[in-house]
C-alpha cells in the first residue's frame, strides 16, 4: 500500500495541519504503510507529479489551502504554488483515492474525477484556534474539535476503510463534538464552534466511487 501526504507549513492554518499530519505519519509508520511525505523543500508540484508517476500511490492526502479549482502546496516567495489545478494536471487524481483537507476543492476540482474517489469540501474548511496555543497546535483544545475528526477520517483510509465509511467517521465525530458543545452552550465560544462544525460537516462531499479503499 502506497500513499503520499502533502505538508505545507507557512502560516497559522498550515502549521496546525502540519502538526496533525505528523500524527498520520506516525500512524502509517506503526502500520508499515509507505507514506511519502512532501514537506519543504520537497513540497513542489514537479516532485509531487514525479512521485505519483514513479510510485503510483493509491492514496493521496492533501493538507493544504485550496479553492474550487486548486489544491495548493508551499509558498515560494510571495506566491503559493499550485499542486493540482483543474485543467492543468487534475488527471493525476484519476483512479486514486484522494482526501483533500483543503477549502472548496470538492466544488469543482473533485468533480473532474472519472474514476477513483475524492473526499473534500465544497466550501471553506474552517476552524477556530486558541491564540494562546498557536505555538503548540496539538495542545489547542479549540482547534482539536475540528481537526481531530478530519485526522480520524485520514486514519480510517489508512486502515483500509472505504471512502464512505471514512467520511462517515468525520461526520459522526463532528456530530459528537456538536452535541458536547450543546451541553456547554453557556460556555463562551461553544455555539460559535458548533456553527463551524456544522458547516464543515455539511460541506463535506464524497465524489466518485464511495466503496473505494486501499488494497492491502
Amino acid at each position: 500500500m502506497k500513499a503520499v501526504i502533502t505538508m505545507p507549513n507557512y502560516d497559522t492554518a498550515t502549521s496546525y495541519l502540519f502538526c496533525y499530519a505528523e500524527e498520520l505519519i506516525k500512524f502509517a509508520k506503526e502500520k508499515s504503510i509507505s507514506l511519502s511525505q512532501l514537506k519543504r523543500p520537497r513540497l513542489r508540484r514537479n516532485i509531487l507529479e514525479e512521485s505519483i508517476h514513479n510510485q503510483n500511490p493509491q492514496l493521496l492526502l492533501f493538507n493544504a489551502h485550496g479553492d474550487e479549482d486548486t489544491i495548493y502546496g508551499d509558498k515560494i516567495g510571495s506566491e503559493t504554488e499550485y499542486l493540482i489545478r483543474k485543467g492543468k494536471n487534475h488527471e493525476i487524481l484519476q483512479g486514486r483515492l484522494t482526501y483533500a483537507r483543503a477549502c472548496s476543492a470538492a466544488a469543482s476540482l473533485g468533480r473532474t474525477l472519472k474514476s477513483g474517489c475524492f473526499i473534500g469540501y465544497n466550501q471553506p474548511f474552517s476552524f477556530w484556534t486558541d491564540t494562546t496555543r498557536t505555538t503548540t497546535p496539538l495542545k489547542d483544545k479549540v482547534a482539536e474539535l475540528f481537526l481531530r475528526p478530519s485526522n480520524e477520517l485520514a486514519i480510517a483510509l489508512l486502515r483500509g476503510k472505504c471512502a464512505r465509511e471514512a467520511a462517515d467517521i468525520f461526520v459522526n465525530l463532528s456530530k459528537k463534538n456538536i452535541l458536547r458543545l450543546l451541553g456547554q452552550q453557556n460556555e463562551p465560544g461553544a455555539m460559535a464552534s458548533a456553527m463551524l462544525l456544522w458547516n464543515n460537516m455539511t460541506m463535506q462531499e464524497v465524489l466518485g466511487n464511495e466503496e473505494m479503499s486501499l488494497a492491502p
Binding site: A13, C103, P124, S126, D130, T131, T132, T134, P188
Partner: peptide
C-alpha cells in the same frame, strides 16, 4: 459572543 482569544482560520483567506 465569541471569546477574544478565538481566531478563525478560513482557508487561504
Amino acid at each position: 459572543t465569541i471569546p477574544s482569544h478565538f481566531k478563525l482560520s478560513v482557508g487561504n483567506q
